[in-house]
């Protein structure tokens, strides 16, 4: 009776936890609704570039999209708070925190004015910086032209504090730009870095401590209202249940990606404990400065931080 078109910029793969979520969600909705809702997955931006799909959900053209959180702030500035680094220790901790009832109640308010809501918020790996020269410690970021994952201050100010120079660039241009040295490094999802063979041109990969790619599964509220309360409950339940499939792949997914990166000729660099401490000492004040400038963001951040502490 109903079609639910789900767009994602990432390709579907057998290792990535987010793909597991999407496939489990599809199966869950179709089974739970006895086939009354046909879920169609459109991975790899087949339905258009990310901004267009976000707009498409707001306008009711498509029913769901799963972009990185930065693209949702065009509809609702409050989404920006999820870009704050240092909230989560690891992806399991992030999953627990983001599933906390207080956090879910807050996220449920996001986007109400635009007629949208995040059906699910998940992480998609730790922030991964690929670079031409190795980045072994925070000081190595000094003077680096870095393609960041967005243009918001919460993403860029901590990098500026470390001495990096943020550059805004579409994903498609990042790889040739790294090859020619137009940029020195790029923050890129690890699965994207592996999938597009970034190791060919930028063989050094570094995980940034406490930074995770956050994905928001945005749905249109009118769509949920249109399918009626029973089917809405089915969709919500399927989104929740699909987290099991997602969680089942969290460890293996990250390990497989790291192994694939190394196999492709890449190296993985990790900060020492001192490096992590130095990184946090520089970035934390930058994060707090951005958050402190906005009372709403401060309130949202405090709630997230409390939930993160309680779920540790």
């Amino acid at each position: 009776d109903f079609v639910m078109r789900v767009s994602s910029p990432a390709p579907l793969s057998a290792i990535d936890p987010l793909s597991a979520w999407m496939e489990a969600f599809e199966a869950g909705v179709e089974a739970g609704s006895n086939g009354r809702i046909d879920v169609q997955l459109y991975p790899a931006s087949q339905l258009g570039p990310i901004p267009a799909t976000v707009e498409g959900v707001a306008m009711g053209t498509i029913e769901m999209t799963l972009p990185i959180i930065g693209f949702l702030s065009r509809l609702e500035p409050r989404f920006q708070v999820l870009d704050a680094g240092g909230l989560f220790d690891d992806e399991r901790h992030a999953l627990r925190t983001l599933s906390d009832p207080r956090v879910r109640a807050m996220l449920g308010e996001f986007g109400a004015d635009a007629g949208v809501e995040p059906l699910v918020v998940l992480t998609s790996g730790q922030s991964f910086v690929v670079s031409r020269a190795p980045i072994d410690e925070p000081a190595d970021l000094n003077g680096v032209k870095l393609r960041t994952g967005g243009a918001t201050p919460l993403v860029n100010d901590p990098m500026i504090a470390l001495g990096a120079s943020p550059v805004s660039m579409p994903l498609g241009e990042a790889l040739p730009a790294l090859q020619t040295g137009t940029i020195d490094a790029a923050t890129i999802n690890a699965s994207v870095a592996v999938g597009f063979n970034f190791a060919d041109v930028a063989p050094n990969g570094t995980f940034l401590p406490g930074n995770f790619t956050v994905i928001g599964g945005l749905v249109n509220r009118d769509f949920l209202a249109m399918i009626g309360p029973d089917l809405e409950a089915v969709v919500r339940q399927a989104a929740e249940d699909a987290k099991t499939a997602y969680e089942a792949r969290l460890d293996s997914g990250a390990q497989t990606l790291a192994a694939a990166w190394t196999n492709a000729g890449g190296a993985i660099h990790t900060f020492s404990d001192d490096g992590v401490a130095a990184y946090t000492a520089v970035t934390e004040p930058a994060v707090q400065a951005v958050i402190g400038a906005n009372p709403q963001m401060q309130a949202d951040y405090d709630l997230l931080r409390q939930a993160a502490t309680d779920n540790r």
């Binding site: 390709p11 790899a44 931006s45 994903l171 498609g172 790889l175 040739p176 090859q179 999938g195 597009f196 063979n197 060919d200 041109v201």
Partner: peptide, 11 residues
């Protein structure tokens, strides 16, 4: 093409 087929663009 490289982006949607996961093929190395430099190659």
């Amino acid at each position: 093409y490289g982006a949607s087929s996961e093929t190395s663009i430099p190659r």
